[in-house]
Design a binder for these strands. Structure first.
Lengths: 206, 206
DNA sequence: GTCTATAATAAGATAGAC
DNA sequence: GTCTATCTTATTATAGAC
């Protein structure tokens, strides 16, 4: 049974996703909950705190999901695959929240923004570390880790912008496509270079 | 010599980029231009029309840039490279406008939104056509064209979100990284598959 | 914990003089 | 083409009763 505080949060998620943070008023949220707008302020100090609360629990769960997925994988390729699958499926399964967390950072106060950005940086660092390990082990081509980690994450994050739960492709199918594209992208040059250097040795690895 | 209309537009671009569309008031823009806020309304019917004007000229120039870059390339790989370079360099060189055009769609009325989205769809279709031609000619692996075109475009568009003109990497260096990652991503599976099927023939193509 | 009523503020936009 | 002055409206947030 959901508390009113949870109801408010969930109605806010729905409205922020559909209309945007600025276009959603406290009255809109109250109407969605079936209460008066003044009652919102009993549960949250203000509109911005409500946004912050949404973003914080989203980032928390995003990080947990990544840790859970990584726990099941051991070698570097498996770990990268697990990380991408976690990232993609979280962003599609919790589309509304991830959409908000990505697109409404402008709505946060400076203090709250720095908390969320710090969490996001922690999250990105895990991906950068995965790329670095892959490069160290010679599985991926040497590359600019920061730029590529942004590229990989953004690419999958964008799913939250166009995904339709009742659309042509399921979450798993989309995760497959992204997983393949990113892994290919990271490994391709390595593969072709290895082939050029030593086709025989390359063949044993394929 | 810039007209006041151009000045207003350029000040608005700067403020929308730095503070966001909703957080920027007509008064802010007027102050940036050194005029009174009522004077803005002589040049633009309202704040939303100003945003629309910025987005429309940005999309126009984005499309022109792509056409110019494509005119110089002939084969499919060269055309894809040219398209990616055009996309990346435009988004970094005109960072403020492309950032706004990407992140402030929520600020448009329904009518204006549909105009911009239609232009964006035209633009995306050119990339989808490039991918399709590459697949037809066997240069790229068969793939989901819509999803991959979103992936490629978003990945590069995201540059406008983190790029620093005075940062570590130049526009050209970033374009190089993206060009390589995307091309590798599109061709990788094809390359390794070709090698598995016929290593000798593959070698002649490398 | 929710209500009614209202304060406080700020924004987009217009009227009309110069 | 720009100004001063003002209108209109909407929003966040608070006070205080129940």
């Amino acid at each position: 049974m959901a508390s009113m505080k949870d109801t408010i949060k969930s109605v806010a998620v729905d409205l922020f996703f559909r209309k945007g943070y600025y276009a959603t008023s406290i009255s809109d949220i109250a109407r969605g909950c079936g209460i008066q707008k003044a009652s919102i302020y009993y549960h949250f100090p203000g509109k911005e705190e409500l946004l912050f609360s949404i973003m914080q629990s989203t980032m928390q769960d995003l990080l947990s999901s990544l840790e859970n997925h990584l726990a099941d994988a051991s070698d570097i390729e498996g770990r990268m695959r697990a990380a991408i699958r976690s990232h993609v499926s979280f962003h599609l399964n919790r589309q509304k929240e991830t959409f908000i967390a990505t697109s409404e950072l402008r709505g946060l106060t400076e203090d709250h923004l720095s908390v969320i950005v710090a969490r996001r940086d922690d999250y990105e660092r895990i991906f950068q570390e995965l790329i670095r390990q892959g490069v160290d082990q010679g599985v991926y081509e040497n590359c600019d880790m920061k730029i590529l980690s942004y590229a990989i994450l953004t690419l999958c994050t964008a799913g939250a912008f166009w995904f339709r739960p009742d659309g042509r492709l399921s979450v798993d199918e989309i995760a497959d496509i992204y997983e393949k594209f990113v892994l290919n992208g990271l490994m391709a040059a390595q593969a072709s270079r290895a082939f050029q250097q030593s086709p025989a040795e390359f063949a044993t690895r394929t």
